[in-house]
Structures are given as C-alpha cells and as structure tokens.
C-alpha cells in the first residue's frame, strides 16, 4: 500500500504539471496560428495611454 501511495503521489507530482505544461504549449501554438500575437505586439509596441494614466 505504501508503494501505491508513492506511485500515486509521483503521478500527481509530475504528470499533472506536465499535462498543464503541454496544454499551455498547445494553446500558445493555437494562439500564434490565430494571430493573437499580432494583437499583443500592436498593443505593446505603442505607448498605452490608458496604462500610463492619460485615458
């Protein structure tokens, strides 16, 4: 039973974050393909008047 508990904790310890990481990578690829990065660049490369308190 001790070994089962160790195996279970090993699964949750590494597999869950690995799955989230893989999902994140997939989302990033989808986002790049969908040209969301262009929106990010367009916003970030210009002075954000709202962010600096000028509306």
């Amino acid at each position: 039973m001790g070994d089962n508990m160790k195996k279970e904790s090993k699964a949750s310890r590494y597999i869950i974050p690995a799955a989230i990481f893989a999902c994140g990578v997939t989302f990033v690829i989808i986002g790049i393909a969908d040209k969301e990065v262009l929106t990010v660049l367009r916003k970030a490369a210009a002075i954000c008047m709202e962010c600096i308190g000028l509306g």
């Binding site: 974050p17 989230i20 990481f21 994140g24 997939t26 989302f27 790049i32 969908d34 969301e36 990065v37």
Partner: peptide, 19 residues
Amino acid sequence: PKYWFAFYLIGLLMIIGAV
C-alpha cells in the same frame, strides 16, 4: 470581439504556472 478565448496568453500563463 475577435477572440473569445486568449489562447496565446492563457497558454503562456499555463506554462509559467505549471513550472
């Protein structure tokens, strides 16, 4: 809205958060 879900941003945050 053009995007109802921010795949790129959420993906980046998931990568950082997962690590």
